[in-house]
Simulated scan of single mutants.
Amino acid sequence: MLTILTPTYNRVQTLPALYESLCAQTRRDFEWLVIDDGSTDDTAAWLQSCRAQTSAFAVRSLSQANGGKHVALNTGVRAARGDWIFIVDSDDYLTPDAVECMMDAVAQASQAPRLVPGVCFRRADPQGRLMGLPCEDVPSPFVGAPSQVGRMVRGDLAYAFRRDVMADLPFPVIPGERFVPELYIWNQIGDRGPVWFYLDRAIYVCEYLDDGYTRNFHAHLRRNPGGFLLFYAAQIGREPRRLDRLKAGIRSVQCLVYCAIKAAADRRRAPS
């Protein structure tokens, strides 16, 4: 079975679109697991109503104190019942054939002679345009690593990973921070074996909100310098081009500066 894992925080206004897209799936042998990361809106009541009216697939939810998306993903991986986990954000939704496409890819990957820890498709905007660059003349599936394909595509991707591999590689939790870049863990998953990428097919629809991560990158960096430092320090050794290694190094220094500023502010706020 596939677990569709959705971390959410105060997204009761966008969750119905995702729910409706799940109800419209051509294949329904999946569970929808929602991790409510301390929402203060009506998310809990709305999820209860979904559980009461849905029989085509299992709807499960867990609540936790607000700790950030990475902590919610850790919680979801531990609670998931599926062998594979398809991560779908609470402000996005799926095409009607998304689960069918993902499960077909998972079935093929599971028969491979070498461990395939993840499969991946493209994302599109609500108008159906691919996020990032087209990848013409690329075989499908393309076998590679998340960082490598990220450089090719220059856009966000839709991943599903083996639950056992994700359980072995939880996101680090840094006190006082609420974000760690997902690619930090996705790259480590790719170290376990090649990920299969279907770069000619979009099954995931997203629209960047004004309060989302993508449009607030620099604010996230200042608030979560330790998590970003983990990522950029690791990227220095992963980037094949000297210029990209230099950029990762500069970001790492920037994160160190923000860590020092944050530590100084914490000391000033601490009771004497």
Rank of each mutant, 00 (worst) to 15 (best):
W84I: 02
Q111R: 05
H70M: 08
A105P: 01
W84L: 05
A202Q: 13
T214P: 01
M131E: 14
R245A: 11
K262M: 02
G144E: 07
P7E: 07
I236P: 06
V180D: 03
D104C: 03
D37F: 11
I261S: 06
L133W: 11
L2Y: 07
R114G: 04
N74F: 09
I185N: 10
L47W: 09
A263M: 06
L62G: 08
R223M: 03
R201P: 02
Q25R: 13
S140M: 09
A109M: 00
C120H: 08
L2R: 10
A263V: 05
H218M: 02
R60P: 03
D41W: 13
D168S: 15
P16A: 12
S110I: 00
K262R: 10
G212M: 00
G176D: 04
G82V: 03
N216Y: 01
P96C: 01
F217E: 00
S147M: 12
V138N: 08
P126K: 04
G237T: 08
V195T: 12
E207R: 15
L47Y: 03
V71I: 06
Y213A: 00
C101S: 02
R223N: 00
Q53K: 13
A44Y: 11
V88M: 08
E182P: 02
Q108C: 01
F231I: 01
V138Q: 10
N216P: 01
Q13P: 04
V99L: 02
V138I: 13
A202S: 15
Q254V: 02
G193S: 10
E177Q: 04
S55L: 10
V106P: 03
T26Q: 15
L209M: 11
V173W: 08
E177F: 00
H220Y: 07
L169N: 11
L73G: 06
P175R: 09
F57N: 06
P172L: 07
L18W: 13
L133I: 07
V34C: 15
D164S: 15
V165G: 13
A233F: 04
V253M: 05
V59L: 08
T214F: 03
P126Y: 05
G226T: 03
R201H: 15
R251A: 11
A98V: 04
D42L: 14
H220Q: 08
V165P: 12
R269I: 08
W46H: 07
Q188C: 08
V253G: 04
A124N: 05
L62R: 08
D41S: 14
P16Y: 14
A167P: 04
I87G: 04
A248K: 11
C50I: 07
L183F: 09
P7R: 14
L229V: 00
